[in-house]
Amino acid sequence: MKSIAAIAALTLLTSLTLSSCGAKEFDSSKPIQVITREDGSGTKAAFMEIIGLKGQPDVQNAIIQQGTAAVLAGVKNSMYAIAYDSLGYLTDEVKQISVDGVEGTVENIQSGDYKIARPLNVVYKEATVEGNPLYSAYLDFLASSQAQEIIAENGYVSMREGEEFVVPDNLEGTISISGSTSLQPLMVLLAQEFEDICPKVSVEVNGGGSGVGYSNGENGVSVFGMISEEFAQDKAPSCVPFTVAKDGIGIIVNLSNPIEDISLSDLKTIYDSEAEDPIRSWEEVIG
């Protein structure tokens, strides 16, 4: 009986200790915790290129998170964090801040006012796709008004008006798509819609990353390879790109952080490992 009492007391004590860990106040003198993505990530490549730090090593003591979900979890759990992530992924568990006074909204990305945005492309071999009615129908569908509706509904930025997609007769077969995990969730939704329109067609969408998108497109492993950056011809010499949509990259901080806006130059300094006058604490940014 003594041991049961001891265990009960221990459980009570643990839960009391844990529940006393309440929210702490934000202290702007604390260092900024820089969260970034792993090398090879399309989002990282796009972000670093846009803020002018292409190919630079990470800042000292940066936290590297694998994948967009891990970035969100990292920001949610760490009060002094700053990170970047695809707009399509942002949840209300983190706080998105504006850059140079421009909010990262669909309108601002379409108009080009919001600077931190990137294209979401598929790459394919022209000969393979044009010679095949199924593949070319899918490409037409990606440009159609139905597709644009799905793109806009899910927080991505539609780049064309699009005409209504009319289903050609007797479409059947399988389309394989693989690559960037940033484009993957949107492509899955588009593929489902296409399968609804053409019941005999199956569209397989796999991830792997932009690197896989290039190589699978180039080697013919997939009909379409997905890449989430500006198309680089040398990575897939025999392919051509098609821009499905644009994706803004949001700058996010913890919900308890009072900051609302950051300048592009401050943002650059935070992520610059070779900055002459590095920004270390939040008070230097919040002012």
Partner: peptide, 29 residues
Amino acid sequence: GGSVNYPTGLTVSVRTLTANIAMGAMELT
């Protein structure tokens, strides 16, 4: 954490060899 640093402190962002392989295996060429 994932940065390439020596473990000079208990809360310094670091990376192990296995983590290094896993981080790049899907993306690098």
